[in-house]
Design a protein around this nucleic acid. Structure first.
Lengths: 150, 150
DNA sequence: ATTGTTGCAAAGATTTTGCAATCTA
DNA sequence: TAGATTGCAAAATCTTTGCAACAAT
């Protein structure tokens, strides 16, 4: 079963109808998997092939996909709301490196926090269900450019 | 020099005038240091003693305080923009535990990421300038309540 | 006195909602 | 066919801005 089919099955299972708009949105999210798109960006890309899709539908579809756990709704430090397909292999171990210079958002897929979560549980008696970890700084590309300039 | 005086000195140094509205805002942030207030919350609290302060002024004051590094503008997973006084002792080692049940935001003041930042730098050649770490889960209080119920 | 600052109201930006028309199952 | 879904426009939120009056240095 392809990833698309598996997502479509999740929707049906949750009792949602599979409309062309929803299918197109899921396909688009699959295509741009590595990126973190905003609702407006998704809307603009969708318009290219589906000129009369409405922005409200995009918002509603993204909400629904968030509900059924197909996408992650991520709010970064800049306050931008971005949507991101949840994929099996990435699971919940998914952190971000945000470059202060070029603004690029890089994902890293490894769990860095296993030991720290244990520590949190012991010290604060806090049951960790999920976490968000973001590093802000200067990415490799921008660092290289800086060196080149001098 | 009190914390208030030191903040007022920062403002003057940056060329800003010290108006009653600004002083009141800083005093309020000092008073509610442990909390993360939204602009609206700050506005409402301010109104109690300064009934004719404007919301726009609150936003402008908070922007200015962010510029001069007196407050942190933090955007959590819920998308709410919150403001938080930067204090010497807390520095940049300041993480959050957010309870999924009661919504309480708890700060923890220790640097958990020293080793991880080194790893990030080596693996991704990313120069870390700052970080944001948030744990989502169930706080001690809510966990206790759950146990009591059974 | 000069320049920054304020409050207000209007404008922006983003997201949500009401509703009649339309589609999916 | 029945109920969910859509597009549109209007509304709701949150934040910013223009401007004349005002206040801090």
């Amino acid at each position: 079963m392809s990833e698309l089919e598996s997502i479509e099955a999740s929707l049906r299972k949750a009792g949602f109808k599979l409309t062309p708009q929803r299918r197109a949105t899921v396909e688009l999210l699959l295509k741009y998997q590595t990126q973190h798109l905003t609702a407006e960006e998704i809307y603009a890309l969708l318009k290219q092939n589906h000129p009369n899709v409405g922005l409200a539908t995009v918002y509603r579809t993204l909400d629904m996909l968030t509900d059924v756990q197909v996408v992650n709704k991520i709010i970064f430090e800049d306050g931008m709301v971005r949507f991101d397909l949840k994929t099996q292999d990435h699971g919940h171990f998914h952190h971000h490196l945000i470059c202060n210079i070029c603004g690029r958002v890089q994902e890293i897929h490894e769990d860095l926090l296993v030991d720290i979560e244990k520590e949190i549980k012991q010290k604060y008696r806090f049951e960790v269900a999920d976490h968000r970890l973001t590093f802000l700084g200067i990415c490799d590309r921008c660092r290289q450019k800086r060196i080149d300039k001098n």
